[in-house]
Design a protein around this nucleic acid. Structure first.
Length: 113
DNA sequence: ATTCTGACGTGGG
DNA sequence: CCCCACGCCAGAA
């Protein structure tokens, strides 16, 4: 029934959540990488939109999802100020000025998983 | 119903 | 370097 989240494997959102959930600790992923992995490289926006609803999803480390530049674009959506960066740094991720420094090294690609 | 915006990415000027 | 437009889909006004 559609009263609740009936998005199973057919739901684009759900697919995004599952991918994000698989992001290992200390690693980050990009919206585009997820979108591309799902076969929608042009729908990176939807990935971000899905993340917006991710707060109803358990074990969805949205803080590990950054944009192509490695910028913590979703930082403003997190409770508290600078929480996202703090969480990333807590995992050993080097962040500076709201941007992941060694992003290329910690970049986790679902396709490679 | 229409219009705009949005946690993006790519391409063109 | 900066600015603009397109695509993609969903949600809010």
């Amino acid at each position: 029934m559609a009263t609740d989240i009936e998005m199973g494997q057919d739901g684009f959102f759900m697919q995004v959540y599952q991918v994000v959930r698989q992001i290992p600790e200390g690693r980050v992923c990009t919206y585009g990488a997820i979108a591309k992995y799902l076969g929608a490289p042009q729908s990176a926006r939807m990935v971000g939109w899905a993340m917006n609803a991710s707060h109803q999803m358990p074990d969805v480390p949205a803080h590990r999802v950054v944009n192509r530049q490695g910028l913590l674009t979703g930082q403003h959506h997190f409770p508290g100020h600078g929480l996202m960066q703090k969480m990333l740094e807590a995992e050993g991720i080097r962040v500076c000025d709201n941007k992941v420094q060694n992003m290329a090294e910690i970049m986790w690609d679902p396709q490679s998983a």
